[in-house]
Amino acid sequence: MGDFNQSVILETIRRSGEGLSRIELVDATGLSAQTVTNITRRLLDDGIIEEAGRTITGPGKPRTTLRLNADSRLSIGVHLDPAVMTFVLLDLSGSVIERTTKRTPANDPRRIIMAMSKAIDELIVRSGADRERIAGIGVATPGPLDSARGTVIDPPKLHTWHRVPLRDSLAEATGFPVTLEKDTTAAAVAELWTGSSPTHGSFLFVYLGIGIGTALVLNGEAVQGSSRNVGEVGHIIVDPDGPLCGCGKRGCVEVVCTPQAIVERAERAGIFADDRESSDAASVDERFTQLCARVAAGDADAAAVLDQAAQHLSVLISGMTNMLDVDRVVLGGPFWSRVEELYLRRLPELLDHQSATRAVRELPVSGTVVGDDVGAVGAGCVVLDEVLSPRASALFLGH
């Protein structure tokens, strides 16, 4: 209970921005004045919070404002994408201090882990950060994951990654503790940490990367699932007449909604010559960027391809939101900014038409507040979240 109360106070101070007095913390948390005093004294001694001046609001002694000491703890977030690796250094507030991107090497896991370690070291050196203040490294990767063993198991587009012990290998290479998280779940955690919406709410996060995935937030916590692999939606059918998928079904998300599927549809429509030398992540990324640029320039045929992709994606989203009854939908990921304008124009109307609760309420749809780095930022926030955020599960008592 003591750890949970400390997390509640710290989270309340963190979300306040400018800080709160002890009396304001009592009002905001419902904890006793003695509990707030004891916990804030301990947080001050540990340097996690700091005094930020005094204010006079009426009779009596001035109130001391307590705010987060954001530089007291740092974390590193890494997003492993088949095309590009993103690295960020975060402070305790979740703000990005330093970032960099690197092209993902050929699929050999050893080369990729070595490249990760080198990029992390360069990031720390360039930022001038004290290594002692870095709580750990969070890595967001495509699933599925074996969380108990810290391994990545056959992720899409990383074809040689069969049970790669990424957690332990990167920890050995860098000297920092490493936490693995699915890229979709990490993105949802980033939205929780940096968003301004109520912490007790719920939302569906739709992740647009080389693959499509989802994450679910209920009562202010990211749902991870029993094996921490929630959100695998690649083989949900959204177009029964669509292309044949490797799973044997037609029209799965994997072959209809992903960037590769959209690029292939554009090639079949004659928007591009079908002259790509390969279907690797980098070439798909390049051609998808070209397609979106044509849409922005007013190419009606290119816009029709993206519009059809939005319609297919709405089938997936509406099926999930009708079942889960969440407050809102958030979209993000490394491919999001390129389709944001068209998708935000089309998806609300499409989802409203398919909503089972349209007579009761609207379903807000928005893009992530974090930007394209949402996976990496989320991975770094996962490290901070493990230590700092209050979890109701912490109150469960063992027998």
Rank of each mutant, 00 (worst) to 15 (best):
C247T: 09
A266M: 04
K102H: 08
V253R: 07
I113F: 04
V164N: 03
L216Q: 08
R345W: 02
I153T: 08
G53H: 04
T214E: 11
P334H: 06
S389F: 07
E254L: 04
R294M: 13
Y207Q: 13
A187I: 00
E341R: 15
D239T: 06
L25R: 07
R361N: 09
V152F: 12
Y207A: 14
E132R: 13
G220Q: 12
S75V: 06
V295K: 12
E341G: 01
G128P: 14
P259S: 12
L395F: 02
W336M: 10
R131V: 10
R345K: 08
A33D: 14
L80T: 06
T368R: 06
E51H: 01
L192A: 12
E50T: 08
G60L: 05
F335Q: 06
D91F: 07
C257H: 02
I13A: 05
L331S: 01
V387D: 11
A297H: 04
R133I: 02
T57L: 04
I153V: 13
A310N: 04
S226P: 06
R268F: 02
E50Q: 14
P259C: 10
M85Y: 00
L180H: 09
M1C: 02
P198A: 14
T214H: 05
V369R: 11
I271P: 08
M85Q: 09
H162E: 10
G30Y: 00
S283V: 06
L344T: 03
C247Y: 11
S16H: 09
F4H: 09
I49C: 10
K157M: 07
G201M: 05
I39G: 06
S117I: 11
D301K: 14
L316C: 13
V238I: 15
Q354E: 09
D154K: 14
E98F: 09
V383H: 00
T194P: 05
G251C: 08
A171V: 11
G367I: 04
L244Y: 07
I97W: 05
L388K: 05
A379G: 07
R163T: 14
S21T: 09
G136M: 00
D239M: 05
D372K: 05
S147P: 01
E349N: 03
R42E: 12
L123Q: 10
A303F: 04
N229G: 13
S21V: 03
I49E: 10
I13E: 08
V326N: 01
V263W: 08
D325N: 15
A187F: 02
A296R: 14
S7R: 14
T35E: 07
V360W: 11
V230D: 00
I237T: 13
E232K: 04
T184S: 12
A28D: 03
F288Q: 07
E277K: 15
R265L: 04
I13L: 08
E122T: 14
G375F: 05
D301P: 00
I56M: 01
F335P: 00
H159V: 11
G298L: 14
T258Y: 13
A52G: 08
I212E: 10
E221A: 11
E386H: 09
A173V: 07
D45E: 15
P364K: 06
I13W: 06
A28C: 00
T37A: 14
D45M: 05
I124A: 06
T214R: 03
Q224R: 15
D108H: 01
D45I: 13
V8M: 04
